[in-house]
Design a binder for these strands. Structure first.
Length: 909
RNA sequence: GCCCGGGUGGUGAAAUGGCAUACACGCAGGACUUAAAAUCCUGUGACUUUAAGUCGUGAGGGUCCGACUCCCUCCCCGGGCACCA
């Protein structure tokens, strides 16, 4: 008897697949001949794993899990007759690569190809069925030229602007840092010193203009419910109202009073906006306009009103101006850590100004406090301390009046003194102290207030989103250069791209979708995209690319890169030196695989082809492969990557390049693979498992089977070498069976054989159903169960039925399946492209089933009975059972009968 | 504090309203072997000496003929966000 020794055949099987090009995909819809021309009319299935960053460490066993999971799908659908696209590429730009290269004192450009070669070797070793002819890395100039081209289109649409934005900066290392390099306690992960913020001009994506569509389109996606919820919460839509309040000057009567007394003084006094005014307004966003209980306004330190007070455009007393300046300086310097240390303890300062609450008809004092956040809502809140916890804390701290306008539990109308008395939006209660609203339900009262405010033109209902615009600049070397040029002389002449002929034509063509309003056009004056035919704007190969001590991009130190000419006027101009973030390449890679041709894309001819951009547009918009049918990846990308990619697809749809609005129809998460000690695998713990070692000892199939079998696909697992050996044993037993002639030569007329065949077909059906739900663990368990039955029985399967078992095994363990397929069955074409065995449904209809019988809810017996037997028959049969009879005893009973499921005798006395 | 996961044998887990613990690991005993490894066979939730049975899916309550599964209250573990108006 030969032994199962995967080492002896896995390598040659791998070469066979390569030689026979079994994974090549045809191009849709152009219909170039693939290996199965007849499949051109069949349904398509685009199966994609989130592509990896090719690190120097090689594949992690976690990678093996996700890529095998997608591979099982791809292999299954191929055999089911679908035309399958299953590509792989490399997300090679970004911080990890750059930092690794800095450490190794190499240029990432030199390191990345080696890492890719190693990843690719390991993937082939695992038998992953990729169509490598479509491979690319986001760092290939032939790829990132299009990333840059897309950037330019988004710029033209008015989706990008430049603005001073704080970046993380380490004063000790003199370097700009990304979010992930800053530890939660506000220190730099490498040197341990506190980081600070530094203002630098940054490219910003106006993702917020798509907030509503990003929210609405979630409906109808076949994604895990938890991920959908997280996306919804991230976008965070809130319906409310913006109310505009007129700011009135300090009250001359009370100007001699101390600040605290003056802050209180106005409340309850008649509103004075009609007679006095500073000409300034404050707009507050609120979801609960409880205006009859509103006793103050608080603005964020970043609010424009604060600037106006500080520079004297609004007159307040000198003492109050000083207070405001002091408070501003202090709060602007506060790091997140300081603010956390303060906890919920409120700070703030009275500005000396008032505003008129027109609804209630009184003035309220205006305060500044950093519990109000500049970028949330309008950066100003109306204080209603009886009906908001934070407002309550603030009012308590500064002794501001608290007015109850909604009854509490059991009609409580008492003065609000404690937190637990507060009635907030969503609670029940009747309105009080609210004039025309008195007696209404709280929710109704809010609606009425909003109607009233809108009718008087004091405010407007709006939706506010938690989602913020997306900072797209990185002051780093290892990213796509941003293909933009700034021309100071054009800027001075107030020339923007949209005032050029090209820009005007674009505006006209895309007037319905363009977001390039007057503000954007003005702000972006002097900025011009590179001439599209000149792309790619190549990242220069340089010796030194470490982050600079000014926080600026390393490219800014390279004169030959920085100094350029203006695409508009031809004069001297400055090239943008920031690069794009890691997300850029991954935002559209799934759109590139469908038409990518590795050889062609990288040929000199193609790169010099002036029409290549036009070709690109045609290819990206004509392919019928996208959207992605199955997208598999880790839950850590639940928000950012998925949201960004969805955003780009919507923008491209608006540009007319795509005909669909969502990139990923089905999403499934893969759980992490932890080490045997339940910790993350890490060199420092010495608990890393290398797939190379595992394959060398047990073969690729055993590794695949183990990772698919150990737990549901989306659950976290800890590595277990013992359990891996179980997978190996399973394959070994299959090997032995196929080398035991009696087990694959059953007589098809034999009753025992027929029974075994029924079990096989049941298994085929189970595997089909489970694979389509990514329930790989139970699919494998079903095959194991069948194997046990087959092994233990005295008869075998017929030669042709046994073959079907190999076929259903092949998506999970392709090497052994292919080997036996060719060795035992002498097949000449690959099992990968054979047709999935048809289930003989007729055989599966069982004439008799095992029916559990309960007495008073407890199982007391099992009947062998026809699945469709009538109740009378089942009952009669059950009562023949001594044990059942005994448990019923002398009791009266009635019975519940669900045919095929259960018979339950319910006792009644 | 809020949001998202999760809690079932010694272990990974199965069952999504109908026989709780499939499948696998581990363990124990046995076979084969000079021996070990490998392989095969048998057993394996707890309690009850045996039998017959009782209990049992984080805790408590509810709905139902029937609940791991649905509803309510709470506890614990993991992840994320956090003064979000």
């Amino acid at each position: 008897m030969t032994k199962y020794q995967p080492k002896e055949f896995e390598e040659s099987i791998k070469q066979l697949w390569e030689k026979e090009k079994v994974y090549l995909t045809i191009d849709l819809p152009a219909g170039r001949q693939g290996h199965r021309p007849s499949a051109i009319d069949s349904k398509k299935m685009y199966c994609l794993s989130m592509f990896p960053y090719p690190s120097g460490a090689g594949l992690h066993v976690g990678h093996v899990r996700i890529y095998t999971g997608t591979d099982v799908l791809a292999r299954y659908f191929r055999m089911k007759g679908y035309e399958v696209l299953h590509p792989m590429g490399w997300d090679a730009f970004g911080l990890p690569a750059e930092n690794a290269a800095i450490k190794a004192k190499k240029n990432p450009m030199d390191m990345v190809p080696n890492n890719i070669a190693n990843f690719k070797r390991q993937m082939n070793m695992l038998g992953l069925s990729y169509d490598w002819s479509r491979e690319f890395a986001t760092t290939d100039p032939s790829y990132y030229r299009f990333t840059q081209w897309l950037f330019i289109q988004f710029f033209k649409m008015g989706l990008l602007y430049k603005k001073n934005t704080p970046i993380n900066f380490c004063p000790s290392c003199k370097t700009g840092l990304s979010e992930e390099e800053v530890l939660p306690n506000g220190t730099h992960e490498r040197c341990g010193k506190m980081i600070t913020k530094k203002d630098l001009p940054q490219w910003i994506f106006r993702i917020t203009t798509y907030a509503q569509r990003l929210l609405s389109d979630l409906k109808g996606l076949d994604w895990p419910e938890g991920i959908l919820t997280m996306q919804r919460n991230w976008i965070g839509k809130k319906e409310g109202i913006n109310i505009t309040y007129k700011v009135v000057p300090p009250d001359p009567v009370s100007s001699s009073l101390p600040t605290s007394a003056r802050a209180l003084r106005a409340v309850g006094n008649p509103g004075t906006a009609a007679t006095r005014s500073t000409g300034v307004e404050i707009t507050c966003f609120t979801t609960a306009p409880v205006n009859f209980g509103m006793t103050f306004i608080v603005v964020a330190p970043e609010h424009p009103l604060v600037k106006k007070i500080m520079d004297g455009r609004i007159k307040v007393s000198e003492a109050e101006r000083k207070n405001v300046i002091e408070y501003y300086e202090k709060s602007i310097k506060k790091s997140d850590m300081d603010r956390q240390a303060e906890g919920r303890e409120k700070t703030g300062i009275f500005t000396g100004l008032y505003a008129t609450n027109q609804v209630a008809g009184w003035d309220v004092p205006v305060w500044v406090s950093d519990f109000v956040v500049g970028h949330v809502g309008t950066g100003a809140v109306q204080g209603c301390p009886g009906h908001d916890y934070k407002d309550f804390e603030f009012a308590k701290k500064f002794n501001l009046p608290i007015i109850r306008v909604v009854e509490g539990k059991n009609g409580d109308r008492s003065q609000i003194e404690r937190m637990d008395q507060i009635v907030v939006k969503g609670m029940k209660g009747k309105m009080m102290n609210s004039k025309f609203l008195d007696g209404l339900d709280f929710a109704e009262g809010l609606e009425k207030t909003m109607d009233y405010i809108e009718k008087n033109n004091w405010g407007k209902r709006v939706a506010s989103y938690h989602l913020r615009d997306w900072i797209f600049s990185r002051q780093r070397y290892w990213g796509e250069p941003i293909p933009m040029v700034y021309c100071e002389s054009c800027a001075k002449k107030e020339v923007s791209w949209w005032t050029t002929d090209e820009g005007k034509a674009f505006q006209k063509e895309y007037q319905n979708i363009s977001k390039a309003d007057q503000t954007i056009q003005k702000e972006m004056g002097g900025w011009f995209p590179l001439v599209e035919q000149d792309l790619p704007l190549k990242l220069p190969y340089v010796k030194s690319y470490e982050p600079t001590d000014t926080g600026e991009s390393p490219l800014s130190a390279i004169d030959s890169f920085k100094n350029t000419i203006c695409p508009n006027c031809g004069g001297l101009a400055v090239a943008e030196t920031d690069t794009m973030p890691n997300w850029a390449g991954s935002c559209w890679y799934f759109l590139a695989f469908p038409f990518w041709n590795k050889e062609k894309a990288n040929s000199k001819l193609e790169i010099q082809n002036l029409k290549s951009i036009e070709n690109f547009k045609v290819q990206i918009s004509n392919s019928s492969w996208p959207p992605v049918d199955w997208y598999l990846g880790g839950a850590e990308h639940a928000v950012l990557h998925l949201l960004y990619a969805r955003f780009w697809v919507k923008a491209l749809q608006d540009l007319g390049l795509l005909s669909f609005s969502e990139p990923f129809l089905r999403l499934r998460n893969v759980g992490m693979v932890l080490a045997e000690d339940h910790r993350k695998m890490s060199k420092s713990y010495g608990n890393v498992i290398n797939p190379d070692d595992v394959v060398a000892e047990y073969g690729a199939d055993a590794l695949r089977i183990y990772e698919m079998f150990m737990a549901p696909f989306n659950m976290e697992i800890s590595w277990s070498t013992k359990a891996l050996q179980g997978g190996y044993r399973f394959l070994n037993r299959i090997w032995q069976l196929f080398h035991t002639p009696d087990k694959i030569k059953g007589d098809t007329e034999d009753k025992q054989v027929k029974k075994l065949v029924v079990s096989l077909h049941r298994t085929i059906k189970k595997v089909e159903g489970d694979v389509a739900q990514t329930k790989y663990n139970t699919a494998i368990a079903a095959m194991m169960e069948f194997l046990n039955e087959w092994e233990k029985g005295t008869v075998g399967l017929s030669y042709s039925e046994a073959k079907k078992f190999l076929q259903i095994l092949s998506p999970f363990a392709p090497f052994i399946a292919e080997h036996l397929w060719r060795d035992i069955y002498k097949e000449k074409t690959s099992i990968c492209i054979s047709s999935w065995p048809a289930v003989d449904e007729k055989q599966l209809v069982a004439s008799e089933i095992q029916l559990p019988v309960q007495v008073a809810g407890k199982v007391r017996g099992v009947l062998t009975i026809s699945a469709s037997a009538p109740k009378e028959e089942a009952e009669k049969l059950a009562l023949l059972d001594e044990k059942i009879k005994k448990h019923i005893g002398e009791n009266k009973y009635r019975s519940i009968y669900v045919p095929g499921k259960i018979l339950n005798f319910v006792l009644s006395g």
